[in-house]
Every structure is written in C-alpha cells, then in structure tokens.
Design a protein around this nucleic acid. Structure first.
Length: 341
DNA sequence: AAGAATGCAGCGCT
DNA sequence: CAGCGCTGCATTCT
C-alpha cells in the first residue's frame, strides 16, 4: 500500500484555519520600490523578515527522481520555509501585475478565441541582451555594453523586480544553474489550469533546467511521457497497461507506470532538467473543490532562453496586449488595474 | 449488504 | 491548446 496521503483534501483545506491573529500587515514602503517604464506600477522590495528566511533556503529536504526513462527531477519539499511561504505568496499576489491573455488559434477553417485559464506575467530577456544595472535598467548588448537597437524586439522586455531577483539568485545558488527568465502564473482556483505541454521550446538550451516554485494552494501536478515508449515493437509489453484495476489508494509518485502525480505544496520547488522537457509532458489539471479564499496558487518558474524568439514568445503568451490585473484584497480577486484610479 | 445515484477525473474530438 | 461532452470509476446515499 504505497499511498502516502490518505487525507481528505477538501475537508483539510476547509478547516485548517491557520494561526489565529498573526496577520501582521507589513506595508512595504514605495521608496525602495522597483519601477521600470514597462511596469504598470512599481513593485516594492521584500520585507526583511522574508529576505532573512529566504536566505536560508532551501529549508526542507530534496529528493532526486530519475527512476523513469528520460526523467530527471529534483523535488525540494519546502524549499521555501513554511513560516514565510504564505507571506511570500501574499506579497507576490498583492504586488505583482498579472494578465489574462486572450489569443486566437485556427482550427482548420474556423478561428477560435482562447482565453488562457490562469493569470500570467513574465520578466526577463534572453541571453542575447541584458539589463543595465539599476536604476535605469535599459536593454544593453551583453558584450559591447551598448544599448540594443530599438527594433531588436517587438515586445518590451521587463527586468525582474527585486523581490524576484532575490528568489532567482537563491535558486541559482542552490541549483548551480543560471536563469534569465521568470514566468509567474496565478491559478485563482480549481477552475484555472494548464493542459499537458512541455517547455521544450527551441529557444531554450538543449536540455534546459527549469526551476518551478509552488506557493499557496496545493495542486496536482501530472506528468506523462510523450511518445508512448520508443517505437520498439519487439518488446512485447507485458500486460502492464493499467495497474489501477483493483482501485486502491492513489499513489503520490513514482514506481509503476508512465504517469506520475505530485501534490505540489506551498514552498515546494521542482527542478526539471536533462531530457525531462524533451520526453515528458506536464500539466496542472482542473480540480473540483478547490475554491474559496485559500484556493489561489502561485507558480514561479525560472529558466534560461538563449534566442530572441524566446523573448518574443514569452511576452506574447504571458503578457499579451490586454490590461494588467492586480489583486484586490477586499474583493478577494484579481481586478483590472487602471492607472490613476 | 447491495443496487442506485452522484461526483469527478480522463479522454477524444473540435 | 482550451473547452466541452461523453464515459467509466469510485464514493456516497438509501
């Protein structure tokens, strides 16, 4: 009986009222706020209380998961300290701007309108450019140091705000990787999702390392490999197909078949590397019962793009051309943010 | 104790 | 890829 989480999720999330009155509103001053012409509004820097704890990351233990073909994961449970995970979640949800990207796809003859089922935002630029040091933060050529030509990008790349720079550095030190992009997703509740895909874009390096953080609500993270096993017909596959015949508990991960499930919790970090992106798909499926004030989840990924198209692509699909959203604490939801209002 | 009703997750098609 | 409808499974209800 390999199942490790026999708990009822729905009940849990409903009744685990955290510590009573511990909500200490740390109102960050706007003096240290990070601003940039591409930002709709300035993003303050992290409170010292969070920074101190962040500096001691990773907090929990990590587990190497490579017992499947072409899979190489490093799963940090509680990379971010339990006692600041919620504060960091609140901070980012409150102070970052997000987008609900709409785009059109063509399916045969007809065109279909798609609204991305999650809030997204992105910072960074591919390695053919760099941001000059603060405060100006304009785009320069990393070799010459000269400003890049105006028409190098159609989009307008944004530097990481200091709060994300901090987390990025911590992650780089821990993983011994380097990153130049930060994508942030906000899943408002169980209706928000991302379907199976892989981050195998050609503008990333060949075997990209991608660090993925979870904050806020727990959500299932599904993985399955792409080509149902190398096209090798001689190995008459044993009748393994469904091990679920006797409907027992639900495993959390690994062993048996080709489909994995992780219940990602607040503070966790999953590092995907090697051939993982080339050979595996992952998704955050929609889930019933994930609703209410604690249903929100933030996902932060760090990665490295080495081509300009990467920059264009990420800004197109994670910022788009719509209005920015900002968290409204009173309403408990994202609302369209308008300047001067 | 066992069949019926309900709720979900997963899959295929668009 | 998102979104929807259909299907099978499993848990709950009676």
């Amino acid at each position: 009986m390999p199942s490790m989480t026999p708990k009822k999720r729905t009940l849990d999330s409903f009744f685990t009222s955290s510590s009573p009155a511990k909500k200490q509103r740390t109102e960050p001053s706007l003096e240290n706020a990070f601003n940039h012409p591409t930002y709709p509004f300035p993003v303050p820097s992290l409170p010292d209380t969070i920074i101190e704890k962040l500096n001691t990351s990773p907090a929990g233990s990590s587990k190497r998961i490579n017992d499947q073909p072409d899979l190489d994961l490093l799963y940090h449970h509680s990379f971010i300290h339990k006692d600041i995970a919620r504060d960091l979640f609140d901070f980012l949800r409150q102070h970052l701007f997000f987008y609900r990207v709409h785009y059109k796809i063509k399916r045969g003859p007809s065109e279909h309108s798609i609204s991305t089922p999650r809030y997204t935002t992105v910072f960074g630029v591919d390695s053919t450019s760099a941001f000059s040091p603060t405060p100006s933060n304009h785009l320069i050529d990393p070799l010459s140091g000269h400003p890049v030509p105006k028409d190098r990008y159609k989009c307008r790349p944004r530097p990481l705000p200091s709060c994300l720079q901090h987390l990025c550095r911590t992650t780089e030190e821990s993983t011994l990787e380097t990153f130049n992009f930060c994508l942030v997703n906000y899943y408002a509740d169980g209706a928000d999702s991302i379907s199976f895909h892989s981050d195998d874009e050609h503008f990333l390096s060949p075997e990209p390392a991608i660090a993925s953080f979870s904050l806020g609500a727990r959500r299932d993270f599904l993985m399955k490999h792409k080509a149902a096993v190398p096209p090798n017909k001689d190995d008459a596959e044993p009748v393994s197909s469904s091990t679920a015949g006797d409907g027992k508990g639900k495993d959390n991960d690994s062993s048996s078949s080709s489909s994995l499930k992780f219940v990602l919790q607040s503070g966790d970090m999953l590092l995907m590397r090697g051939k993982t992106q080339t050979c595996w798909l992952h998704s955050i499926p929609k889930r019933k019962g994930v609703e209410g004030p604690r249903a929100g989840r933030i996902n932060i990924t760090f990665r490295k793009a080495v081509k300009r198209e990467g920059t264009e692509n990420y800004y197109r699909y994670n910022v788009g051309d719509g209005e920015p959203y900002r968290w409204d604490e009173k309403r408990g939801e994202m609302v369209v943010w308008k300047k001067e209002g």
